[in-house]
Amino acid sequence: MISVLFAILTALSNGAASVLQRRAARSVPDTEAMRLSLIGHLLRQKVWLAGIGLVIVAAVCQATALATGPISVVQPIFVIELPATLLLAGFVMRVRVPRGVWYGVAAVTFGLALGMASAAPGGGSSSVRGAAWVPALVLTGIFEAALIAGARSTRGNARGALLGLAAACGYALTAALMKDAMGRLGDGGGAAALMTSWQLYATAAAGVGSLFLLQNALQAGTLVAVQPMLTLGDAVISILYGVTLFGEHLRTDWWLLPELAALTLIALGCVELARSPLATGNAVPPPGTRVK
């Protein structure tokens, strides 16, 4: 399936970008938090610019995936971004991958497989009908405002987790807007329908806002605090958008039990992976090793 292939490519790009951005954000002083000057500081760092390049690649792949498949199928696949990135980092740096990382990879992979098999997401339309966006945007705005207000009243990992969830909500909204915009392209309107749709420009605005929230999340807390909220939040909120806006369906009833088990496995796997030196940027290759 084309959508699954491009979702995997998106996950690889986003995972690598997240680690690079975390390395750059760690050098930003606390006084720059929640200010536009934070972005100016990051623009001077090559590692952050490399991460942004991967974000652009991911956006193209994500648009292709969403144009060819349901959002409730595409977005959950992104939970593999961290395990795939860490394994790739270990290979490139020629660093022995710790046993804990393999456990984390297994937990996330099995959790994703269990969740997808249990929920069996699918169906739905390619675009949003009527004025369904109005309540969705209002509720999203209220939720985001509450998370940001809570983050501003705390510090450290708590702030990072709240802002990570806010960024996840923003990225889920970006995906839903992107799918709606791409759906209008495929409904026969052509490029003109796409370029004149408000969803296209809202996608750009939501993406920039989400990026800003993510940089602040990574600056405020550790990857262990931010990544699980970002990964699970994006997947779960995207599924909510898929069901409520696009009419996609999931299995419920007793299927909720294995679905909850899958979420637990993914969360535990993300925490284990985020603790790895490969994720924090502290992994050191053996002496004399040339890193490609």
Rank of each mutant, 00 (worst) to 15 (best):
L268T: 09
A107W: 10
V208L: 15
T196A: 12
I148C: 08
Y171I: 11
S18R: 13
T109H: 07
V4A: 15
P76V: 05
T140Q: 10
G124V: 09
I2R: 15
A279R: 01
V97Y: 01
C270K: 11
L5N: 04
L218F: 13
A283V: 09
A117W: 14
V226F: 00
P29I: 01
E81H: 03
K46V: 11
E81D: 11
A168Q: 02
A119P: 01
L194P: 08
L139D: 03
L245Q: 07
L87H: 01
H249P: 00
L250H: 08
R26F: 06
G183R: 10
L5C: 10
A136H: 03
T85A: 13
L49V: 05
G15H: 06
I39G: 05
G160W: 02
A113D: 04
F6A: 08
V74Y: 12
A89G: 06
P76Q: 10
A120F: 13
L232R: 07
A146M: 14
D30G: 12
A205I: 14
L147D: 03
V74A: 07
S18G: 11
A274Y: 04
A204L: 15
G104A: 10
T252H: 14
S118E: 10
P121G: 11
E144V: 15
R23A: 13
S276K: 08
